[in-house]
Design a protein around this nucleic acid. Sequence first.
DNA 1: CAACTGACGATAG
DNA 2: CCTATCGCCAGTT
Length: 106
Amino acid sequence: MTELNFTSLVKQVIKQIPYGKVAFYGQIASIAGNHRAARQVVRVLHSSSTKDALPWHRVINKQGKISLPIGNGYEKQKHLLQAEGVEFDSSDRIDFKRFLWQPDNH
DNA sequence: CAACTGACGATAG
DNA sequence: CCTATCGCCAGTT
């Protein structure tokens, strides 16, 4: 373990997302050290979301929307978030002012 | 080793 | 609001 490659770091970051909060790909990548590595975050979720028990449903894109295609996880993720108290507006977007995870801002 | 692939992001039109 | 395009980087093929 210990901090190693960027990928492992991303996993650690995702595990830190608190209940009822969400984070977007670029944010996670930035915290992990590479603000341009949003795509690696995608890969990490694909390869370790289930085996490492990551709260993958708390990861969305910067538009405050779920990136999964409808019919292939979209509704499932939405449901999981709503179960944590996260609300969606009429456009199915999450209000970052209320639900974005802000680690360096209480 | 080269090419391909992504649950992305920003910019331009 | 929408599509198109480029950039970025690691894991796969």
